[in-house]
């Protein structure tokens, strides 16, 4: 891995960081308020999406901005992509039914 890749940590207590460019498996430099200088990505993470900073067990809250932004629906390994496929809102039912890549609704019929 020669390409420099970065992610941004908003608060020290956060369990996820935001990818500042598309990440590939390998070392990721952490900017912002991170307790550690880097983490190893174990999956691809699209630009603007979240990467887990540590193992997050199912049902645990996901922390960003030092507040819960939803909860894990599966065990999330450190360094992997965190999005609709492994987490859900504590409020919004509908967003759990959207396409994980495009965000397109899958609960509206086009017929």
């Amino acid at each position: 891995m020669t390409k420099k890749q970065t992610a941004f940590v908003i608060e020290r207590a956060d369990t996820v960081a935001t990818a500042l460019e598309a990440l590939e498996p390998g070392e990721v430099q952490l900017l912002g308020d991170s307790p550690v200088p880097s983490i190893t990505a174990v999956t691809e993470v699209p630009k603007g999406h979240k990467i887990a900073l540590r193992d997050i067990p199912a049902e645990e809250n996901i922390i960003k901005y030092a507040i819960p932004i939803g909860r894990a629906t599966a065990d999330i390994p450190a360094g992997s992509w965190v999005h609709l496929h492994v987490m859900r809102s504590n409020y919004d039912e509908r967003s759990s039914h959207l396409d994980v890549r495009t965000g397109a609704p899958k609960d509206t019929k086009y017929e």
Binding site: G48, G70, L84, M87, R88, S89, Y91, S95, R101, P105
Partner: peptide, 19 residues
């Protein structure tokens, strides 16, 4: 039955209305 979050927001990496 709708929160202020759109497909473009999800595609851009936001996962929940809380976020």
């Amino acid at each position: 039955r709708q929160y202020s979050i759109s497909p473009g927001n999800f595609a851009g990496g936001l996962s929940t209305i809380e976020e």
